[in-house]
Design a protein around this nucleic acid. Structure first.
Length: 309
DNA sequence: CGGGTTTGACCGGCGC
DNA sequence: GCGCCGGTCAAACCCG
């Protein structure tokens, strides 16, 4: 059932997409699963045919919307590169420069060209800095930060990135009232990667995930042979583009997260990544009431051209 | 019952 | 040397 899974994970903008039929009367469903329309039972074949037809139609809608979103994505990438260009010309200070403790500043992630990712630019360590702590830069291989916007009400410290994490500790730190959660990669016992997740002290809706080290294995999602692009939570790819979008699915399993660069990443071309990108764009856009309204109007105009209502 | 989470205890680095 | 603080451990607990 590839088609159904496509629908499931396609843009969920269409409030009617889950509806099985577009008949005048709202179809009722019997406990045995048969649809009743106009008081008559639809046979399984008729029902299937109607569903397939509806599915195809929704697929068409999804394709068109996907194309639009892809175009928007490209525009977004262009804008982002401009922003990055500007930022590189005027180097910003770090988020929490007041940190006195050892920081994960040993190395910059080479490919943090993304929105949500800030490789610690403070790694331009001054001389007095490096003279005091020769230790950490030897050990730490790679550190990157990822910023993920979530709902403030979402109390979970879950940042999905396609890997399997095991929480091994939580601590309330001094400079931030929000607890910091410590994660280890649990997919491979030998994987040295650690992750710290904490809400930003400045903006509680922003989660800051700090990655230390590099995975010595494939992402969990890529190890699953059966997982197609449709499994929203499990098909995440850590190298997919990071965006500080409103990733606000209430369930932790649905919250997306990302890091690393997109535009110069060859994996950008994979259908999964593109699909995910589209999903994220859709999620973001649906938070915009204006966009939702306009889109709903456009869709309803398509679906019900005869009706003025 | 196995795997993940919670949470208090413990450890080690760093500043004073 | 002492205390603070971030990071980790591990037993208890939870959940599917």
């Amino acid at each position: 059932m590839d088609t159904s899974s496509w629908v499931d994970t396609s843009l969920d903008l269409n409030p009617f997409s889950a509806r099985p039929l577009r008949l005048e009367e709202t179809p009722k469903k019997e406990p045995n699963g048969n649809l009743i329309v106009f008081g008559k039972k639809l046979s399984v074949k008729e029902e299937t045919g109607a569903l397939v037809e509806e599915l195809n139609r929704v697929n068409e809608e999804n394709k068109k919307l996907t194309e639009k979103l892809t175009a928007m994505c490209e525009n977004y990438n262009a804008l982002r590169s401009q922003v990055m260009d500007l930022m590189s010309k005027s180097p910003e200070k770090e988020i929490s420069p007041s940190k006195k403790r050892k920081s994960e500043n040993s190395d910059n992630n080479g490919n943090n060209c993304n929105f949500g990712v800030v490789g610690n630019s403070e790694s331009s360590s001054t001389d007095e800095d490096s003279s005091k702590k020769p230790r950490q830069e030897i050990i730490k291989a790679k550190v990157s930060r990822v910023y993920v916007r979530t709902e403030v009400s979402d109390t979970g410290l879950v940042v999905k990135d396609g890997y399997q994490w095991r929480k091994y500790g939580q601590k309330v730190t001094r400079d931030n009232p929000s607890p910091r959660a410590y994660f280890r990669c649990s997919f491979a016992p030998t994987c040295p990667v650690k992750k710290k997740v904490q809400r930003s002290a400045d903006d509680q809706s922003v989660m800051v995930a700090t990655y230390e080290g590099e995975h010595n294995h494939l992402p969990h999602s890529q190890m699953e042979p059966t997982s197609g692009p449709s499994h929203g939570s499990s098909s995440l790819n850590p190298s997919r583009p990071a965006m500080s979008l409103g990733l606000t699915k209430s369930k932790p399993s649905g919250a997306g997260e990302a890091r690393n660069c997109s535009s110069n990443n060859p994996e950008m071309d994979s259908p999964q990544v593109r699909q995910y990108l589209v999903e994220q764009m859709a999620t973001s856009l649906t938070k915009d009431p204006n966009f939702t309204e306009a889109l709903a109007a456009a869709i309803s105009g398509r679906m019900f051209p005869a009706k003025s209502n």
